[in-house]
Computed example of a mutant assay.
Amino acid sequence: MRTFTCQCGNTLHFPNTKCMACGLTLGFIPNESRLSAFIENANGDLQATFNGKLYKRCKNYSEHDVCNWMVELDDEHEYCESCRLNETIPNLDEPGNIKLWYKLEQAKRRLLYTCQRLELPIIGKGEDPERGLGFAFLKDQTQDAYGNELTVKQFVTTGHANGLITINVNEAITSARMEMREKMGERYRTLLGHFRHESGHYYWDRLIDDSPHIDEFRTLFGDERLDYLAALKNHYDNGPPENWQETWISAYASMHPWEDWAETWAHYLHMVDTLETASQFEFSVFGNRVANPISSEAHRDNDYSAITFTHLFNDWCQLSTALNSLNRSMGHDDAYPFVISISALNKLRFVHNVIMAN
Rank of each mutant, 00 (worst) to 15 (best):
G96S: 05
C317Y: 06
G200F: 02
A335G: 10
S250T: 15
R300L: 11
L104E: 11
A251D: 15
P257K: 05
R187Y: 08
L326W: 08
K183E: 13
Q106R: 09
G193Q: 09
S62T: 11
E224G: 03
L112V: 01
L24N: 08
E186M: 14
I355L: 09
Y188L: 05
E216L: 14
L191A: 04
K125G: 05
D315S: 06
N358I: 01
Q318N: 09
N234E: 15
A253C: 10
E297S: 10
M70G: 02
T308R: 13
V152I: 11
F14R: 10
A107Q: 02
T247K: 15
A335M: 13
N16M: 12
L85C: 07
W316M: 03
H235V: 00
G52H: 10
K59W: 06
N86S: 03
A172K: 05
E87C: 01
L326H: 13
E130Q: 14
V71T: 09
A176H: 04
G147I: 01
E105S: 05
I167P: 00
D223T: 07
A21S: 12
F281G: 06
Y268L: 14
S325H: 13
K108Q: 12
E40R: 10
C22A: 02
I98H: 11
H13M: 06
R196P: 00
A251T: 12
E78I: 02
P129A: 09
S284K: 14
A42C: 00
L104W: 04
I122K: 04
G9Y: 08
S175I: 04
E78C: 05
A298W: 09
V351N: 06
L92M: 15
E224P: 08
Y203N: 04
N43Q: 15
L24S: 03
G23L: 02
D93A: 11
Q47H: 05
E81A: 14
N168W: 01
L111Q: 02
L112S: 05
H352F: 15
L54Q: 08
D65C: 00
L118A: 07
N91T: 06
A298Y: 08
R177A: 07
E263H: 04
M178S: 08
A335T: 13
G239V: 14
H77K: 15
T274I: 13
E127W: 00
R57G: 01
C115K: 04
Y336G: 01
N243R: 13
A262P: 10
Q106E: 12
G44K: 04
A344N: 07
N314Q: 13
T264M: 03
Y61T: 00
R117F: 00
D303E: 12
L92W: 09
Y268W: 08
I249S: 13
A262E: 02
M184C: 05
H64S: 04
A335W: 12
Y55E: 06
M330T: 12
